[in-house]
Amino acid sequence: MRKLKLKINVSFILLSILLSVAGVIAIYELRILDRSFNTLILDNYKTVESLSQLMRAIELEDSGILLTMSGDYDEGKKMIRSGNNMFNSSYTLARKGIKTTEETDKLNEIALLHGDLRKIWDKPYLDAEIMNNMEWYRIEMHSRFLVIKQKVHEITEMHQEFLYKEASLIKANSRRAIMPGIVSIFASLLFAFILNFYINHYFVVPITRINQELKSFKTGQSIMDIEAGQNKELQELIQSINDLIRRLIRKQNPLK
């Protein structure tokens, strides 16, 4: 009976391996998924926020210059300073959050353009001719602001594209996390079905037949004559029962 036990044990060990590995793979893929989620939601949210702040900072600086040129020197200067501070902090945040070299290049371009702008935004209150000169503002300042705004817009689009790719990756990863589970459910069902067939075929059916034969023997109709197929354990059992029956018959009727 040791072999029989071994066969059943091996079957359950195989089933356990199948399920355990599926579990390990699912956990591994879920951890990757978790990491991707963190990147997508936390890191990228900060980057998106910093880029929109960058845009607000530029608009604030633009408004500050316009205010200065219209004569409200103190308020204009205050707005320019606060816009510049906002630009610096959001630029540092965006720098940390961006992922691709294209985005880095674009951010460097923005820094350079902003640097050029800073060099000339003091001119209205240093040069009386420029004060109230809207033509100078349109050509020298506004056009530069527009270019910077365009660059910020481009980098935002690039980042959105990156986000889309990240989201697609998460979709693929989530599928990779789910599929081993689905596959192992079907595989386990099939395994259980085949195991059930083997147990029925090799053990349940012959044992039922032994039982029926023993019942019929009680009524004295026949002695046991069962074939157990390839199952050695059951063959041994049948052999033992047959020996016992023969010994019993011999005891009851020594002449036989």
Binding site: V10, L14, I17, V21, I25, Y28, A187, F191, K232
Partner: peptide, 22 residues
């Protein structure tokens, strides 16, 4: 992982019937 797990499933379903067939 996809290839390794598929290999394992195929291997298990290939050796399983051999355990019972004498």
């Amino acid at each position: 992982l996809a290839l390794s797990y598929s290999a394992l499933i195929c291997f298990i379903f290939s050796v399983f019937p051999l355990v019972f067939s004498d």
